[in-house]
């Protein structure tokens, strides 16, 4: 197991290096620099700005200098916010995004597993179709629409919850979490339904039933452990996806998270911020995928030995 984790972490190093390198050159070739603006900047001002950010040096030199800083944990100064470092921006935005993603994941699990398990108990009946259809709505209603819709209903017409903010007013974290979690609820519902369907026909479940154990115990104690394996495998990528995909929700609800910084950085061509956030998020994704594989192996003993052999 440890060898498996070690080798995966080793593999992550070249992956990150390629990501950094490609991103570094990608942002520099992309049209429009960080200092272009609607009111033309005079050549003198432009030269002064470029000198401050080392942009007047050869690209290769900039690249090597960047890698050097990176090893020391310094992600450089932000182009968009003079006087602030990328480290500082990430430190300000990430905890918020992480909290939002966590709540969203809980929402997704609650709705998704609930709908999936209920549906799997009586497949191809109304008890199957109705919860699954409800969960499915999350996919065809994008956050861009679900967010404003929830705000209109619960924030404005019913006036139960705040329409924006994060930690400013009681209850303002509820709607963003639901909006972000909804998409994943649909995926989780499908996965848990399929997983449960498969498990509930297995011999050990039949044995349990034959022993006279009450049905709810069979489902909850015996069924869930095996039936949720696919869901657990999905958790890593899902959490990673929530972390990097929270931009729309953050904008709609004025949540001061990393997603907003990241996408704005791309729009602003804030080179260092784009790079910094990319490096940071991709490292996180590597870690979460790994965690999910480990957890999966632990939950599913049959896979445990294989995980050790593979890769």
């Amino acid at each position: 197991m440890w060898r498996f984790i070690g080798s995966r972490l080793l593999q992550a190093i070249p992956v990150l290096l390629v990501v950094i390198t490609v991103t570094f050159f990608l942002v520099r070739v992309a049209p429009g620099g960080p200092f272009s603006s609607e009111k033309a900047v005079t050549p003198e001002v432009k030269a002064a700005l470029e000198a401050q950010y080392r942009l007047d040096r050869p690209v290769l030199e900039q690249y090597i200098a960047y890698l050097g800083d990176l090893i020391r944990g310094d992600l450089g100064p932000s182009f968009k916010y003079p006087g602030r470092s990328v480290n500082e921006l990430i430190a300000a935005g990430f905890p918020v995004t992480a909290e939002l993603a966590l709540y969203a994941l809980l929402v997704a699990l609650l709705i998704g597993v609930g709908a999936g398990v209920v549906a799997s108990l009586r497949p191809n009946t109304a008890q199957d179709y109705i919860p699954m259809s409800a969960a499915m709505i999350g996919i065809c209603i994008p956050s861009l629409l679900l967010g404003p819709l929830l705000i209109l209903v619960f924030g404005i017409y019913l006036d139960w919850l705040p329409v924006s903010g994060w930690g400013d007013m009681p209850g303002d974290k509820i709607l963003p979490a639901i909006t972000l979690g909804a998409v994943y609820a649909a995926y989780i519902a499908r996965l848990s339904r399929a997983g449960m369907l498969e498990v509930m026909t297995q011999d050990y479940i039949r044995t349990a039933r034959a022993k006279g154990i009450p049905e709810w115990r069979v489902v909850v104690v015996h069924g869930l452990r095996g039936g949720l394996t696919p869901v657990v495998a999905f958790l890593g990528p899902a959490f990673a996806g929530l972390l990097s995909g929270s931009f729309v929700v953050e904008t709609i609800f004025q949540v001061p998270g990393l997603g907003r910084f990241y996408v704005q950085a791309a729009f602003n061509r804030d080179y260092t911020m784009i790079l910094g956030a990319t490096v940071f998020l991709s490292s996180l994704i590597v870690v979460f995928n790994l965690l999910s594989d480990v957890l999966n192996a632990w939950m599913n003993p049959r896979l445990r030995s294989r995980a050790g052999q593979n890769t």
């Binding site: 209109l152 924006s164 004025q254």
Partner: peptide
């Protein structure tokens, strides 16, 4: 001062008295 990039959000904040 509140950063309000999304003008629809801003309008809703106004409407609920924020």
């Amino acid at each position: 001062f509140y950063p309000t990039e999304n003008i629809s959000t801003e309008e809703r904040m106004f409407r609920v008295g924020q």
